[in-house]
């Protein structure tokens, strides 16, 4: 197999796209203020990121994810989903970051000030 010029261009373009996207995300990153919990798109709880909290999230069909907030770090301590991917996603702390449990349709998102949040909601709806 021999790559032609257009192949190289195309692949480099895809790589460059990821770099651009990554730097745009990294530049726009700020510490968050609010931790928002959504189940199936509906907001079920909201916490200050600065107050330590442990909260049992009831996902779809009554499934459980345990949310922990400590020293500004947010993570899922435990979950009864089969894959445990959400627990393995680790800790988040910046605005715009999130932890997702697909089987329970649970989304934990850190949001910045209210201005940012209202814009996000407009985009999402």
């Amino acid at each position: 197999m021999k790559l032609k010029k257009q192949d190289t261009f195309f692949i480099c373009g895809l790589l460059a796209g990821s770099l651009l996207f990554g730097s745009a995300l990294a530049l726009g990153r700020t510490d968050g203020e609010t931790v928002v919990v959504r189940v199936s798109g509906e907001m079920v709880a909201e916490f200050s990121q600065n107050r330590d909290t442990v909260y049992r999230i009831e996902g779809v069909n009554g499934e459980i994810n345990v949310l922990t907030i400590q020293d500004g770090e947010v993570w899922l301590e435990d979950a009864n989903c089969p894959d445990q991917l959400c627990v393995h996603q680790g800790h988040i702390r910046h605005a715009g970051e999130s932890i997702i449990c697909l089987p329970h349709e649970v989304v934990i998102a850190i949001e910045g000030n209210t201005e940012v949040r209202s814009t996000l909601d407009i985009v999402a709806s």
């Binding site: 796209g17 959504r38 999130s98 989304v107 999402a124």
Partner: peptide, 23 residues
């Protein structure tokens, strides 16, 4: 689909990771 199903734009970081892993 995840953005549509879960009504969130907060998963942009995954898109980046999955974009690179897709390559």
């Amino acid at each position: 689909v995840a953005m549509l199903l879960m009504q969130t734009t907060a998963i942009a970081w995954y898109l980046l990771a999955l974009w690179v892993s897709g390559i």
